[in-house]
Structure formats: C-alpha cells, structure tokens
Design a protein around this nucleic acid. Sequence first.
DNA 1: GAGTGGTCTAGACCACAAT
DNA 2: TTGTGGTCTAGACCACTCG
Lengths: 240, 240
Amino acid sequence: MILTKYEEIENFILKGIQSNIYKADEKVPSENKLAESFAVSRMTARKALDSLVTRGYLYKIKGKGTYVKDNENRDDIYLDEMIGFTRRVERSGKTPRTEVKTFEIRKPSRKTAAKLGISRNEDIFYIERIRHINDEPVILEITYMPVKVSPDLTKEEIKKSKYAYLRKRNHRISEMVKEYIPVIPNLEVRKLLLLDKNMVMFKIELISKLEDSSIFEYTKLYYNQNKYRFLQITKSSKVD
Amino acid sequence: MILTKYEEIENFILKGIQSNIYKADEKVPSENKLAESFAVSRMTARKALDSLVTRGYLYKIKGKGTYVKDNENRDDIYLDEMIGFTRRVERSGKTPRTEVKTFEIRKPSRKTAAKLGISRNEDIFYIERIRHINDEPVILEITYMPVKVSPDLTKEEIKKSKYAYLRKRNHRISEMVKEYIPVIPNLEVRKLLLLDKNMVMFKIELISKLEDSSIFEYTKLYYNQNKYRFLQITKSSKVD
DNA sequence: GAGTGGTCTAGACCACAAT
DNA sequence: TTGTGGTCTAGACCACTCG
C-alpha cells in the first residue's frame, strides 16, 4: 500500500511513541527537522504532526516544541455510578472547585426549547459551570433549565450542586437520558477549558425529568481531553 | 475576539448549516469559490473545510464537491441493553450481515498479552469481523481470544455469535468491562470501514471474563461515523 | 474539457520560549 | 538571537466526476 508523505511521517512518529523512543512529555523532532530529514516541505511535516495532535498522541507548545501526550493517570468514571463531581474528586484525594462562569435568564433557542419541551418565549436559566480539579479546569457544563420549574434558584446554590437544590425542595430526578458523543470542541469550549488545540474529547448531553415528568434540565458536559476514562462494568449479563 | 481567516470561514459554513441554507446532503461552496469570495488562498479555505469534516459536519467526494452531513436517522444503542448486533438490527427491520475478514492463530503483542493476562508465547485467536447493515459496513470488531480458553472455536461459528458459541459449551460471561473512547480512526480502520476521511468516531474496548474468572476475550469495536447514537437511561437515581 | 478535491512546494511573516 | 510553532500565500500536478 502506497502512503502519502505525511502518512509516512505520522507512522514514523507513532512507531517512535509505541517503541518508547519518544517518551511521555518529551519532545518529538521539530517541524523543520522532520521536513529536512524526510525531504519534504514544512507544511507537509506540519500536517502529520497536526493530525497526531487531533488524534490525541501529541501536544504542541508554541515557541517550545511538540511533545508526546501522557495518557496514563486518568481518572475513571463509571457510567453506572451515580456520584457527583465533588464527592468523586474528594474520594480520589484531590481538591474540587466549581466556578460559575455564567448565570442568567434568557429565552431559549429553537433547539433548546424543543429539548426542554417549552415554547420559545418562556424564560430559562442559562448556566455555565467549570469544574476544576486541583485548580485545573477539567469539565465544562452548560445547563438550560426552565425558570418555571425552578423559580427560586440562585447563583449561590448553583455553586454547590443542582441536585442538592432539588433535595432542598423535596424533589428528585425520576429519569435521566444521556447521550455520549465523541467531538472535537469548538472555539468557545476550547477557550473555557484552556485547550489551545483541537483534539478529540467526550461530550455528554443529558435531559433529566422530575417525578411529575416535567423536564428539569437540558445539560451539555465536555470532559477535558484525556483526563478521564469512561468505564462500564456489566456482571452476569445475558449477552447477545 | 479576533478570528483567523480559516476560523471565519468555518463559522460562515457552520452558520449556513444551522440556518439551513446548506441542507443535508447538499453542496457547500467549493474550495475555489470560498477562496475567491473570502479573498484567501485555496489552502486556507481547505483548512476550514477539512476541520469541519473531522468534526463531523461535512463530507467530501473527490471530483464532486463538499456536502453537509446528515446526522439524523441514526440508530440508537442503549448502553445498558445487552442485545446482540443481529437481533438489534433485525428488530429495526434492516438486514444484518457479518463478514469474517480474518480468523487466524497468532502470538499476542505485549499489550494484548497484558490485557489477556497471558504470556507472550501462548496462542491467541486474532479475529476481524465487519458488521454490515443493508450491506453497508458499520462496525469493525477486532477480537483477541486465548486459544486455551476456547480451543475448539471455528471460523464458521464466529460468523454467527461469539456468545452463542459460549452457550453451546455451557459457559457464560460473568463480567464485562467496557471503556468508551472517542477516536479518529487510523488508516487500517478507515480502509476496512470504507471511510475515506478522518472523522471523529466511537471506539469501545472490552474485556470479558467467564465464571471461573478466566479472560475470554479482549475486543475493540469501532462504530462507523454518525450511524449510531449511544444512549443511557437512568431511572430514579440518587444523583450527586 | 471544466470543475472538483488531494497532495505538495518554497517561500513569507508572526508570536512566543529560551539563552 | 535562535528556534519553535501558527498562519498564510500563490502557485503546481494529480485523480476523479460529469456533461
């Protein structure tokens, strides 16, 4: 099989990573070095490196160089374990912090109104929260909530937990539908999570309902790069 | 906020998709048209389109043009529903087919041996299967199984179901650990699934054990582009 | 033949890091 | 000052599709 020049370079770097010639958080050859040693233009060498950045193998630092990404030491998230961010982080001995970036009342977009099952002129809370672990931003959460369902919600309460607020009001979630989506984040998400480069990451979209079937929230969650592994354990299943 | 030229073009196309000016499976402006109307070089226009392809908004056909991806009409996969491929497809009124691309005995790589908990000189089955729906390849499955655990496995049996084989032998899976991973597929995966372009997709890696805790398989599953939605429904949870 | 996307070149200027 | 990555240009040749 014939490869393009940039595919040759990609494979060269990948082999170097697999054989541990290029170690985690150490440099791979610069774009100019690669261009010279493969006798290609710098743009071709760049294309190879950029591809490996997007695929999660490398990261770049302007003015410094290109480095091998360390994908070990990620935190595990079990899909069936209903545990909140704060408790999960504390259990692992780290320090969680929640930053409420935005808390305001808006009218929903057409898409959001449809998700919430309301009309476009009803008010909603628009809430952006950033979850930090040891002061590093790891999760961006964007929540849309109908004001009529949670009329007395305050910014102070949202700093803690949406679900603690529910308990206080003697409500609870009766059903939650989650969709797991592989994405490359857009500019806004990259900015909020301090990611300077495109790379694959995890998005979860969820809708949760209360006991009376009213929709409590429509939420999008973006999980920072390879800080997380998403696991599911199934016991004694009746597979296939 | 100042945007680069290719980001301007990306946003222009995205707005056109959101406002339905560019409709599903219809063309967006060609690279040359965009280069002209934005007064940039063709390479810059290309960079914008390529980014949107990787992010799953567009697809390109050489010699024809660049089209808006239709992300509706995807099949739902429920993470908690333990149902096999064949039954799930038939339930939706479509025709499933399994192609056994490779079935051979090998020695495992270091990584595979570690996953299977065996030594590098024990034999394993290496199995590549491609799942088709209505003759379109949608899932690539790569399985590693220790021969000593399933010594009498045949290619004929693997054409049907791994788990039917287990039942025949009066065994069953006692535990399955799955990891969900967002990836951009490599060349080999793209070739087998007939994908001509880089784009985000879903990978599942799983390890399943039998009642005696022996490891039955280590399997990687690649789900074709946006043919699938991965959903999870949680009822009456004790959230956060 | 005209238009499309795919690859590639040989430059350029910039912002940023390190020394 | 040197080296790095980030953006961008103005070409080129190719393979493919379609009329």
